[in-house]
Design a protein around this nucleic acid. Structure first.
Lengths: 111, 111
DNA sequence: TCCACAAGTAAGTTAACACTTACGTAAATT
DNA sequence: AATTTACGTAAGTGTTAACTTACTTGTGGA
């Protein structure tokens, strides 16, 4: 379930939508008007975002209002936290030491 | 660039790989042996993980050893943090209050 | 140098997905 | 009830990507 949210947030268009509905609760048409793609396409993205719990929706007459759902993002954060067992802090320190030994990229794979 | 990492981590197979190479530095073949899919498939996943900075690689004779790169994950976390402007805390509080008003799912979309 | 081992690369296949246009649906207006 | 407004759904298309089976590359040993 959280995996679906991760997949959902990986899409750049949905990222943009999330940013837009972050502070403002907006209608589907309003959201769509800010993009170059068609309204149905936005509708489908909104569907994904609602299904994965990243956005909530409520009806207002003939319109549908969407807004970001902080809990959804929080789930992703929690998932990433437990992802490699919260030993992140330890590994981070190791990484900081590593930084002094090598100042280049992570791997060259040029051969 | 971070977006690519997000996309990379969204894949369940790569998530599994990340977990495996989280604490142990393993060879490509060793990693592949833990999955049902073919070795080339794993090789391609490893390529993606290295390219997005989530995993590092070093050569050891004829083998190639992979291990998780905490910095990569950290970048994703940082991205999510700034994603909706760190006002997450405020929204989280709002969400906690919201919990008392509604105990059901985020949206029903059954109509 | 010839062989074996470890791994990446190429090319092709299938499925997923982000789109499109066309159509259906439901609430407000007249 | 018919119309308008706001939106979702259906069906089809092109592209991406996760796989497969072959093949190539590179390292170490006899």
């Amino acid at each position: 379930m959280v995996e679906a949210a991760l997949k959902a947030i990986a899409d750049p268009r949905r990222q943009d939508i999330l940013v837009i509905v972050h502070e403002n609760e907006l209608s589907a048409g309003d959201i769509a008007s800010r993009f170059d793609i068609t309204r149905p396409a936005i509708s489908q993205h909104l569907r994904v975002l609602v299904d994965t719990g990243l956005v909530s929706m409520r009806r207002d007459g003939t319109r549908r209002l969407y807004k970001a759902r902080p809990e959804g993002l929080e789930e992703i954060r929690a998932f990433l936290d437990q992802f490699w067992g919260r030993s992140l802090d330890l590994l981070k320190k190791a990484a900081e030491q590593e930084q002094q030994g090598e100042s280049d990229e992570h791997t060259d794979h040029s051969g």
